[in-house]
Deep mutational scan, measured.
Amino acid sequence: MPEGSASLQLAVGDRVVYPNQGVCRVSAIDVKEVAGQKLTFVTMRREEDGAVVMVPEGKVLAIGVRKVASAE
């Protein structure tokens, strides 16, 4: 991610809310080559049905992904 860009610090195992998809758990953060460029992807699995969603790390905030609020 370019320096100075806002990002959401995620780790494998974090629970997040993905708008219009529901609650997901981060299952992987991997670098993949797409069209000759190396990009970091956040892979999330929906808790409702296990569907897998992959989002480029740089788009996580723009999409509206946020961490699940704690009970505290």
Rank of each mutant, 00 (worst) to 15 (best):
G58S: 15
Q9G: 08
A6T: 12
V16H: 01
V17E: 10
A51H: 10
A71I: 12
K67F: 14
D49K: 02
V52H: 06
E47M: 05
T40G: 04
V31P: 01
R45L: 14
E3C: 04
K38W: 12
E33W: 12
K32T: 07
V23P: 04
V53P: 01
A35T: 05
V55W: 05
S27N: 06
V16A: 04
L10H: 01
T40S: 08
G22M: 05
F41P: 00
A62W: 07
G22H: 04
S5M: 10
G50C: 02
G13P: 00
V53R: 03
F41D: 00
A69S: 13
P56W: 10
D49P: 02
A35Q: 09
V23R: 03
E72S: 11
G58N: 15
T43K: 05
E3D: 12
R15N: 04
D14L: 04
I29F: 07
E57Y: 15
L10W: 04
P2Y: 10
A62S: 10
G22V: 04
N20E: 09
E33R: 06
D14W: 02
V55H: 04
A28S: 14
D49N: 07
S70H: 11
E47G: 01
G13C: 00
D30I: 14
G36L: 02
A6K: 12
K38G: 03
R66Q: 15
P56L: 08
F41I: 13
F41Q: 02
M54I: 14
K59M: 15
L10S: 01
E57G: 09
E72Y: 09
R46C: 12
E72N: 11
T40A: 07
A69D: 14
I63Q: 09
Q21E: 08
V26C: 00
F41T: 06
S70V: 10
G64D: 05
A28E: 07
E33A: 05
G13F: 02
M44W: 01
L61G: 08
K32Q: 10
T43M: 08
P2V: 13
V12F: 01
V42I: 14
R66S: 12
F41Y: 11
E3N: 12
L8G: 08
E33G: 04
G64M: 08
S5V: 12
V53E: 03
G36I: 02
D30N: 10
N20M: 09
E33D: 10
K67N: 06
S70W: 10
E57R: 05
V68R: 02
K67G: 06
S7L: 11
V12P: 04
R66N: 14
V53C: 03
V12W: 06
V65C: 07
T40D: 01
Q21C: 06
E47C: 02
Q37I: 15
E72H: 13
N20Q: 08
M1V: 12
V34N: 04
L10P: 01
Q9I: 12
A69W: 07
V12G: 01
R45C: 02
Q9T: 10
E57M: 15
E33S: 08
G4S: 13
S5A: 13
K59G: 06
L61M: 09
Y18Q: 02
K32L: 14
E48R: 14
V31S: 07
A62L: 10
V53Y: 15
E47A: 03
V65I: 15
L10G: 02
P2L: 12
E48Y: 14
G58P: 07
V16Y: 05
K67A: 07
I29A: 01
A6V: 13
V34H: 07
V55C: 03
L8M: 10
M44C: 03
E57V: 09
V42W: 03
V52P: 04
Q37D: 05
A35G: 14
P2C: 04
S7Y: 10
A6S: 13
D14G: 00
T43E: 07
E47K: 01
R15K: 09
A11L: 09
V31Q: 08
S70P: 13
A71S: 12
R45W: 11
K38E: 06
V16F: 07
K67D: 08
V31E: 09
A71R: 06
T43V: 14
V60H: 03
G64H: 06
R46H: 05
E57Q: 08
Y18D: 03
K32W: 14
G4R: 06
R66M: 14
R25W: 09
T43S: 08
L10Y: 03
G4L: 11
A51C: 05
E72D: 11
L39A: 06
G58A: 14
G64N: 05
L39F: 11
V16Q: 00
V42D: 00
I29Y: 02
M54H: 07
Q37Y: 08
V26T: 01
I29C: 00
A35S: 13
M54A: 06
V17C: 00
F41K: 01
S5P: 13
V34W: 08
A69Q: 13
M44Y: 02
Y18T: 04
D30Q: 10
L39H: 15
M54V: 14
V42Y: 14
Q9A: 09
T43L: 08
L8Q: 08
V68P: 11
S27G: 03
V68S: 05
A51N: 07
A69E: 14
M1C: 03
G4F: 08
D30A: 10
L10R: 00
D14T: 02
G22Q: 06
L39D: 04
L39G: 05
S5I: 13
G13I: 02
A11K: 13
A35F: 09
L10V: 14
K59W: 15
N20R: 07
V23M: 10
Q37K: 14
M54S: 12
G4E: 12
A51R: 12
Q37M: 12
D49W: 04
A69I: 14
M1S: 14
V65W: 04
D49E: 03
K67P: 14
N20Y: 09
S27C: 01
E3V: 11
Q37P: 01
I63C: 07
V26E: 00
S5G: 12
Q37F: 08
A28Q: 08
G36R: 03
C24R: 00
M44F: 15
V68G: 06
V53G: 02
C24S: 01
V65D: 04
L39K: 07
L10D: 01
E33F: 11
A69N: 14
I29G: 00
